[in-house]
Every structure is written in C-alpha cells, then in structure tokens.
C-alpha cells in the first residue's frame, strides 16, 4: 500500500463524520427551508415578520449581555482565585464549576426555585417590602440562568490564562510607576485578551443556542431556539424552522470565526 493510499484510508473516518454530522444535515436543513416557497422569501420573512425579527434581536441582545456580564464576573473572580491561596480555595473552585454538570432544564428549574412565584427572592421581598418580586419567567430570569451555566466555562479559561501569566510582568509595570489600576488595564487584561475572546465566543454561541433553560422559563418570551421549536412542532412550519436554524447557525458561526481570527486557536463551540 502506498503512503498516499494509507493517508486516504486514515482520512476516511473524518470524511464519514463530516458527511454524517455536518454536510448531510446541513444540506437537508438547507433544502427544507425551500419546501414551502422555492425562493429566498422564507429567509426574507425572518427579517420582515415582527415576531421573528424581535425574537432574533432579543436572542442576540441576551447572548451579548450574557457574554459581557459573564466575562466581567468571571474575570474578577478568576483573577482572585488564580492569585490568592486560602483554605477552601479548591472547594470553592469545584463549587464554581458545578453548573457544568447540569442540563439546561435543571438550570431553569433552579432559577424558578430562586425567583419564581414561590421562589426565595419573592418570599424575601414580600417579607421586607410587601411586594413579591418574580423575575424567573422574564428576560432577567433567562439572563440569570444563562449566567449560571456560562460563568464556569469562562472562569476556568480565564483562571488557566491568569495562572500562566509571568508574575514579573506586573512587577515590571509597577517598577515603572504603574498603579494597580494601570497594571490591570495596561498589562493583565491585554495579556488575557486571547482567553477573553476564546471563552467569550463559546459563551456567546452557547447563549444563542441554549434551549433547555429557555424551554423551562420562557413562557412569555421568545428566544430563537424556542421559536424554532414552536414553528417545527406546533405550527409544522418546517421551512421556517429550517431557515431560522440556518440563520441561528450562521450568526454563531460568524461569531466563532471572528473569534478564531482574532483570538488564535482554542476556540470551539460548546453546549
């Protein structure tokens, strides 16, 4: 057997996987989006129908806010955990990464327990102010749920990057007169940029496509994965469901590609 043939043989499993999990489903999905009308009007409808457009914008906004908040929170916590050594640190880290183990439905359930009609926040606010605050079934509830499962992924990436930082970098900046704020802004955060881009992209992609949490909580709100579900199962509008899926995939893919371009390797989709 020649080397060339051997290499082709080695490439076969990859080819099979690409075909089975990427090309065929994507192709069928693409074809499905033309089932009802044989032109691009289904795609056009996404941008002109208020319901689809508002759900698209809401999902985008939710994913962006989730990503920014997650990055801010995880960076603060990650830098602290990466630098400080204290008793119970490893337990705390384990606890912080716990949400990785939960499916979206469980996360949604926990948000309901926290901020639902019989939730903890509601009980406390009722006792203190007399008004029961319930936000589990709103955009805020969804955001809390998304933050809950996004923080661990970003936190671990930021911590790993922060631990690899040469401590002398900060010493050097300080020796040149930089205050702690300057050290953070001029040295630490720029050095962590690749980690931010990589983990931020994953966070964004996950938030765009998250279904379980949305399914549990979104009784009043329509995020894109929920709309796709409704179109497909309840309305039997397969063409629209397919078009929306491709739209969702495209946006996420563009975000990941941009991240990979600017942030180097190590960026992959998750969730």
């Amino acid at each position: 057997m020649t080397v060339r043939r051997f290499n082709i043989l080695l490439a076969l499993p990859l080819g099979a996987i690409v075909a089975a999990f990427f090309l065929l489903p994507m192709g069928i999905l693409f074809l499905q989006s033309f089932v009802t009308r044989q032109d691009t009007s289904t795609y056009f409808a996404i941008l002109t129908t208020p319901r689809y457009l508002s759900s698209l914008l809401a999902t985008l906004a939710l994913a962006i806010v989730t990503t920014l908040l997650t990055l801010a929170l995880s960076t603060t916590v990650g830098l602290l955990l990466a630098r400080q050594r204290f008793p119970g640190r490893s337990v705390l880290i384990a606890l912080m990464t716990f949400p990785l183990a939960f499916p979206g439905v469980v996360v949604g359930f926990m948000v309901i327990l926290l901020a639902g009609r019989q939730g903890l926040v509601g009980e406390i606010t009722r006792m203190v102010t007399g008004d029961k605050i319930v936000f589990a079934y709103s955009m805020t509830g969804l955001l809390v749920g998304y933050l809950y499962f996004s923080i661990p992924r970003v936190l671990l990436t930021v911590m790993a990057a922060a631990e690899k930082l040469d401590p002398a970098l900060e010493d050097a900046a300080r020796s040149l007169g930089a205050s702690p704020v300057h050290v953070l802004a001029d040295v630490v955060l720029p050095a962590l940029k690749p980690a931010f881009i990589a983990s931020g992209a994953i966070c964004f992609a996950t938030a765009m496509g998250a279904f379980g949490t949305a399914f549990t909580l979104a009784t009043k709100i329509d995020v894109l994965p929920m709309v796709i579900y409704t179109e497909f199962t309840l309305n039997a509008n397969v063409a629209m469901a397919a078009a929306l899926s491709i739209f969702l995939g495209a946006i996420t893919w563009v975000a990941l590609t941009l991240a990979r371009t600017f942030g180097g390797t190590g960026v992959a989709a998750a969730g």
């Binding site: 040469d166 002398a168 970098l169 010493d171 050097a172 007169g177 001029d186």
Partner: peptide, 15 residues
C-alpha cells in the same frame, strides 16, 4: 511604583 527605581528581570518581563 513610588520608589523611582528601574528593574530588570530574569524573564525580561516585556509587555
């Protein structure tokens, strides 16, 4: 940062 010294590190520590 307020001692006005210059420091050179083994790892260079360039930004």
């Amino acid at each position: 940062e307020r001692r006005h010294v210059g420091m050179v590190f083994q790892s260079y520590a360039l930004f």
